[in-house]
Amino acid sequence: MGAHNITRVSEFHLLSFSEDPDLQPILFGLFLCMYMVTVLGNLLILLVVSSDFHLHTSMYIFLSNLSFIDISLTSSIVPKLIVGILNHIRVISYVGCLTQMSFFILFACMDHMLLTVMAYDRFVAICHPLHYATIMNPRLCVLLVLFSVFVGLLESQLHILIVLQLTCFKDVKIANFFCFPSQLLNLSCYDRLIITIVQYIFGTIFGFIPMSGIVFSYSKIISSLLKTPSSGGRYKAFSTCGSRLSVVCLFYGTAFGTYLGSAMSYSPRKLEVASLMFTVVTPLLNPFIYSLRDRDILSSLKRLHHWRV
């Protein structure tokens, strides 16, 4: 089918992790466990933050929203992947592909926008502690969350509008385990240069600009921490910021690598592994990085456990 242009597409074929029948039960169990841990871990954060009024501050409001988005992001992809492994089906309908792509872009964009907002929140808390309560007031927090939703909806709808204009495809085989937008665009019969330019424009506006905000915030945070006289406090702050920054780099690095790498025809297997990092691994790590190392969250968990008992 790849040798001829296809004007009417009813379904797409997704890339599998392995064709080895002996590996299918292992992959099924692995992805199912990762998905359950991700959902339960992020649900626990939502429960703790919502049940403890001490945590009703900007930092934990952003964290609870991040948990909800992580659940939604991984749920837009992993259940379909698990069912496909179980039933040995690698096919997704045209409408299903557009729907999955729409939700994926929405939650992925909201995710990196919220990571930018959280970096700014920590920048204000560490670099301007006396003005933190004034700057990060409840009204601004709500506006920042709503802005993240707006940007996510904007990017999602722009991608969908572009894909809906595609009436001709070179192939129906998507080189990934889900309907990744840039790889879907690469299947179109349109001029490759135009498609590449569109991808780089989207990557710059919706990826590079938020990432620049994160880099700026953490560079200011690190500069401020270096001036801290207490070596113990400096080490603790560096440890916390370092772990958070590492997850942010993992998310952005693999997301950018997959999106722009598709435009440069990188190996499908490498793109598949990179996609796995920011769609499955980072949502899995976020509850551990952002919560289990946080004393307030741990204290709330203990109070919640004693109250339940």
Rank of each mutant, 00 (worst) to 15 (best):
P283N: 07
V281P: 01
R269E: 12
F256D: 01
Y259H: 10
A263D: 13
S265W: 10
T258W: 01
Y290Q: 07
P268N: 00
L271R: 01
V280D: 01
Y259K: 04
Y290N: 12
I289R: 05
V280N: 04
T282K: 00
F256T: 03
N286H: 09
R269W: 10
M264Y: 14
V273S: 05
M277Q: 07
E272M: 15
L260Y: 13
G257D: 05
L284M: 04
S275A: 10
F256Q: 04
G261N: 03
T258D: 00
T282D: 02
S267I: 06
M277P: 01
L292E: 08
L285H: 00
S262A: 11
Y290W: 10
L260H: 14
F288D: 04
L260T: 11
R269C: 09
D294E: 11
F278Y: 09
P268R: 00
S275G: 14
R269L: 15
L260S: 09
S265A: 15
Y290P: 04
M264V: 15
L260E: 06
S262F: 02
Y259I: 08
M264P: 03
Y266T: 11
L285P: 00
L284Y: 07
G257N: 05
V273D: 06
Y290A: 11
M264R: 13
A274Q: 11
L276E: 02
S291P: 04
S262L: 01
P283G: 05
Y266P: 08
L292C: 11
K270T: 13
M264A: 15
L284F: 13
P287C: 09
P287L: 12
E272H: 09
T279I: 13
A274L: 13
V281S: 01
F288H: 04
L276T: 10
S265N: 14
I289F: 04
L284V: 02
A274E: 09
K270C: 12
N286C: 06
T258I: 07
S275E: 03
L285T: 02
L285W: 00
S291G: 15
P268E: 00
V273L: 13
S275K: 03
V280K: 00
V273N: 06
R293V: 13
E272R: 05
I289K: 02
L271F: 07
M277F: 13
Y259M: 11
Y290L: 14
T282H: 00
L285M: 06
G261H: 03
L271A: 06
D294K: 13
S262M: 07
G257E: 04
I289D: 02
M277I: 15
N286W: 08
P287S: 12
S262K: 01
R269V: 13
V281Y: 02
V281C: 05
L276C: 09
V280A: 05
A263M: 08
V273C: 09
L276N: 06
Y290D: 07
S267C: 11
V280P: 00
V273A: 11
Y266W: 15
M277V: 15
T279N: 08
S291H: 03
A274H: 07
N286L: 09
P283H: 04
Y290V: 04
Y290M: 12
F256R: 03
T279C: 10
P287Y: 08
E272N: 13
G257H: 04
G261M: 06
Y290C: 11
M277S: 08
L271D: 04
Y266R: 12
N286Y: 09
L292I: 14
S262T: 03
Y259C: 04
L276W: 06
S291D: 06
S262E: 02
I289L: 03
P287Q: 12
S265T: 08
P283R: 08
F288T: 06
G257Q: 05
I289C: 07
